[in-house]
Computed example of a mutant assay.
Amino acid sequence: MAADSGKLNVTRLYTDSAGESHFLDETAQVQEVDFAPPAPPMFMSAPTEVKQMVYLKLPTGWYGDLHPAPRRQQMTLLSGALEVRASDGEVRQFRPGETVLVEDTTGKGHASKSVNGESVVLVVQL
């Protein structure tokens, strides 16, 4: 397996003590496991408890102005493109397969919108 297979990139969106939201690039560690024998080994992170999982579909042109997240959630894009602006002004675009851990549940929050004329489908773990 590839030498860098023991790492997984995750973006975190958090609030600082002044109430501003910021992005932070983090690396989750994964290790090789026999998860589903007789299938070949694969890489897995440490388990994280999830209480619920939902799918969200944002229609083409959807826009949510600055708002804090309603709860801590992990969002993984399945289709479309999502642009997120932290309250500090940094803007990032997320594409299918990318994950963001949304933890800015207080403060000014973030703004989000579907871009590129596409609807956005996400799986959200709460």
Rank of each mutant, 00 (worst) to 15 (best):
E20G: 03
V115S: 03
F94Y: 13
T27V: 12
E118D: 10
S5Y: 09
M44L: 15
H22M: 01
M53G: 13
P37Q: 06
Y63V: 13
P96Q: 02
V115G: 01
A18E: 12
E83I: 06
Q125K: 04
N9E: 13
H22D: 03
S79V: 02
L82D: 01
A111K: 09
Q73F: 07
F35P: 00
E49L: 14
K51D: 15
L82C: 05
Y55R: 14
Y14H: 14
F94T: 03
R95L: 13
A86T: 14
Y63I: 08
D104G: 00
G107Y: 03
W62K: 01
Q74V: 13
G97M: 06
L58P: 02
A36H: 09
A81Y: 00
K113G: 04
L24R: 08
R12H: 12
M53A: 15
N9C: 05
E26D: 04
Q125R: 05
T60L: 11
V84L: 14
P38N: 10
E83W: 06
Y63Q: 09
S114M: 08
T27W: 01
K51T: 15
R92M: 12
D104L: 02
Q73R: 12
A28E: 07
Y55G: 13
R71K: 10
L58C: 08
M53H: 01
T106V: 09
T106D: 02
P96F: 00
E98I: 01
R85K: 15
A3N: 12
L82S: 04
L56A: 15
